[in-house]
Design a protein around this nucleic acid. Structure first.
Length: 272
DNA sequence: AGTGCGACCCGAACGC
DNA sequence: TGCGTTCGGGTCGCAC
C-alpha cells in the first residue's frame, strides 16, 4: 500500500533505470485508468525521452521531453522494468523502450490512475493542483496546521488523510504519527493545540524519514513487487499491533471515517 | 464550505 | 469441502 515512503522508493529505483531512455510504444490494456485523453496518451508519448522522475505526495511524476506522466499507485500499483515480454495478468500499461526493454505497470485492483499533461501544465487542473505541504517542507508549521484545522470538526485521524493539508500520509503512517504523538485519533481536528500540531509535524518527519530509509512498509504483499519491498513493518508501533509497546494494554481496532484505525486507549486520550 | 458515503476493483480472509 | 459474504486501500463525485 504505497504511501509517501513507498512511492519515494519506487521513484528512486526507477530513476536508476529509465533516465535517458526513449519510449518506442505505449500499450494500454485497461483504458479506464487513463484519466486524460486516451489517444493522446498512447500517441504523444512515442519518441519522448525520460528526463527525470519526481514525487509529489503519493504521486509519481515521469518527466519526459515535452510531457509529464502522472501516476498514482493507489494500493497495489507496481512498476517492473524488465526484458521484453508479453503482458501478464493484471498488467494494464506497458511502455516499450528504446533499448528493447519494457516498463510494465501492474495493478490487481485496477485502482491506480495515470494522467498525461504538457510539461507547463503540471499543476494546472491536475490532481497536483491543490496538494498540501509535504511533511518535509519547511512551510509545514504548526500555525499552518492550526489554520487548516480550525474549520475541521472531523476526527484528526480523518483530517490527516486529507492530501490538501499534508500530502503523503496514508492510513498506516497516520496511525503511527498519532500514536507517537500521544493524540487520540478521535480528537476533533479543530480542538488540537499548537503543541499537538508541533508533535504531529515532528513525528511525521521522523517516521517518514525512517520509513524511506527502510524502503517503506510491506504489509499485505500478495506478490513481491520489484523495488517496493520495504521493512518498515518491523518498526510499526501501533498499526496491526495487538499490545501497546508503551503500556502493554491491548491495542484497540476500530473504524474512523471508514478506515481501520489502531490506537492505545490509555496512551492516546482525547483530553490530556 | 464542511461532511458523509457510495463507487471504483478483485483476491484474500472469513463465516457457515 | 464448497459456497457466499465481507473487507481493504486512496481518491473522487455527489447529495445534503
Amino acid at each position: 500500500m504505497p504511501e509517501l515512503p513507498e512511492v519515494e522508493t519506487v521513484k528512486n529505483v526507477l530513476k536508476k533505470d529509465l533516465i535517458n531512455l526513449k519510449i518506442k510504444k505505449v500499450n494500454v490494456y485497461y483504458k479506464d485508468m487513463i484519466k486524460t485523453d486516451y489517444n493522446e496518451f498512447i500517441n504523444n508519448l512515442v519518441g519522448e525521452e525520460f528526463l527525470d522522475i519526481k514525487r509529489y505526495g503519493k504521486w509519481l511524476v515521469f518527466e519526459t521531453t515535452n510531457y509529464c506522466l502522472l501516476s498514482h499507485l493507489r494500493m497495489e500499483g507496481k512498476y517492473y522494468y524488465t526484458d521484453y515480454q508479453e503482458p501478464e495478468k493484471h498488467e494494464h500499461v506497458i511502455f516499450e523502450l528504446s533499448n528493447g526493454k519494457v516498463l510494465r505497470y501492474k495493478d490487481v485492483r485496477k485502482f491506480g490512475v495515470m494522467y498525461l499533461v504538457k510539461k507547463d501544465k503540471l499543476f494546472i487542473d491536475t490532481p497536483l493542483a491543490n496538494l498540501g505541504y509535504e511533511p518535509f517542507s519547511e512551510k509545514l508549521t504548526s500555525s499552518y496546521l492550526l489554520d487548516k484545522f480550525k474549520t475541521k470538526r472531523l476526527p484528526i485521524k480523518t483530517v490527516l488523510l486529507d492530501q490538501e493539508i499534508i500530502s503523503g500520509l496514508g492510513n498506516i503512517y497516520d496511525d503511527e504519527v498519532l500514536f507517537k504523538s500521544g493524540i487520540s485519533p478521535f480528537k476533533k481536528a479543530n480542538t488540537l493545540s499548537k503543541d499537538e500540531c508541533e508533535k504531529i509535524i515532528k513525528n511525521s518527519k521522523e517516521i517518514l524519514k525512517e520509513a524511506i530509509k527502510l524502503g517503506g512498509t510491506t504489509i499485505r504483499s500478495y506478490t513481491s513487487s520489484l523495488g517496493v519491498s520495504g521493512s518498515y513493518q518491523d518498526k510499526l508501533l501501533v498499526h496491526t499491533k495487538k499490545v501497546c509497546s508503551i503500556c502493554k494494554s491491548p491495542i484497540e481496532v476500530t473504524k474512523i471515517g471508514g478506515r481501520s484505525t489502531y490506537y492505545c486507549k490509555k496512551c492516546q486520550k482525547v483530553d490530556l
